[in-house]
């Protein structure tokens, strides 16, 4: 029971308090990859905590024993005890409901997101093949178009796409920096990180933390790709490249506070600030905490699950026995 409460509390706490706290933190901008890892790990732990919490409700905690006779007795007795009282049965049903609900939503939304992405990519790839032309020297496909645009199509048949207007408005070094940014997206499979965050957001739309996680991952993968490009290119060159592509667009309505792309350009204007090792460790410890707690609390239900699986047909035993056989001490 304690494990159940702790797990459910941890899941709720991470979603309710962890999300807003992390969203206000400034350090992810300095260490975007760590930021992505923290967002996705904490989101995953929050969901898994609730899932395991449900599991602990359905299973009686049976101590493991090596004595087979005791084991069988305990097994049947415990399960009987759990399911014979209305409260025990109700708890078990609620736990099963939580588990099925969470796992079901996750599975459904994973399939939905995967199908969606595959369809979009396939449609785009077909059109691109007919309209674009390969430029092997550039390592990109080029489309005749008078609006500058640069993007990449990840996954199988991955490629970088540039419009002729983008080529015209960028100098050689700027173009190289932009291509390095896109290549970093493809190489690090940033699309999968975004998709993972999207699955959680879609599966549990009533949890604001997952919407924030998705937002932040979308933003942080851009910073990570910028940082990767900075390993071989100058920061002001990259900033210039990004700004020139943005400036050639038909103007968008003013969005008020400023776009996240604007924040990226501003970040490139000052020398790169890295996260110190001490603070990095602190962050890692903050993530490891909930992870370990979950692992520890889940160990009990996990062993109980093994127990029930190895349990010699408890339902058959209970159903097949004469009533009262196990009731006498």
């Amino acid at each position: 029971m304690t494990a159940t409460l702790l797990l459910l509390f941890q899941g709720t706490f991470l979603a309710a308090a962890g999300g807003p706290l992390l969203r206000r933190a400034g350090w992810p901008q300095r260490a975007p990859r760590l930021g992505i890892a923290v967002w996705l790990t904490l989101s995953g732990v929050a969901v898994a905590s609730v899932l395991f919490g449900g599991l602990t409700m359905t299973l009686p905690s049976v101590p493991l024993t090596t004595d087979v006779a005791t084991f069988v007795h305990l097994c049947v007795d415990e399960i009987r005890a759990q399911y014979s009282t209305p409260a025990g049965a109700a708890t078990a049903v609620a736990g099963a409901g939580i588990m099925i609900g969470v796992a079901g939503r996750l599975t459904l939304c994973s399939f939905r997101v995967a199908r969606w992405r595959a369809a979009e990519r396939a449609r785009h790839a077909v059109a691109l093949r007919l309209i674009g032309r390969r430029e092997p020297a550039l390592g990109a496909a080029v489309i005749d178009h008078d609006v500058p645009q640069a993007y990449c199509l990840p996954g199988r048949g991955r490629q970088i796409v540039l419009t002729t207007a983008a080529l015209a408005s960028l100098s050689r070094p700027q173009l190289a920096a932009v291509v390095a940014h896109e290549r970093a997206h493809l190489r690090s499979r940033h699309d999968l990180l975004i998709a993972a965050a999207l699955v959680l957001k879609q599966a549990f739309p009533w949890v604001p933390a997952f919407a924030h996680a998705h937002d932040q991952v979308c933003f942080l993968v851009e910073l990570a790709a910028d940082d990767a490009a900075l390993r071989t290119h100058d920061r002001l060159t990259l900033a210039e490249g990004i700004l020139r592509v943005a400036a050639g667009r038909p103007s968008a309505p003013a969005l008020g506070a400023g776009s996240s792309s604007g924040a990226r350009v501003r970040r490139l204007l000052v020398p790169r600030q890295r996260l110190g090792a001490a603070r990095g460790l602190l962050v890692a410890a903050a993530v490891a905490g909930p992870l370990m707690t979950m692992a520890w609390l889940a160990a009990a239900p996990a062993s109980a699950a093994v127990h029930v699986v190895t349990c010699p047909l408890p339902s058959a035993a209970v159903a097949g026995q004469e009533p009262g056989v196990f009731q006498s001490p």
Binding site: E120, L153, E182, L192
Partner: peptide
């Protein structure tokens, strides 16, 4: 690009 189906260099700005 929010589905990760494709990733743009830069979003629209005012």
């Amino acid at each position: 690009d929010r589905t990760g189906a494709l990733l743009r260099l830069v979003e629209s700005m005012g």
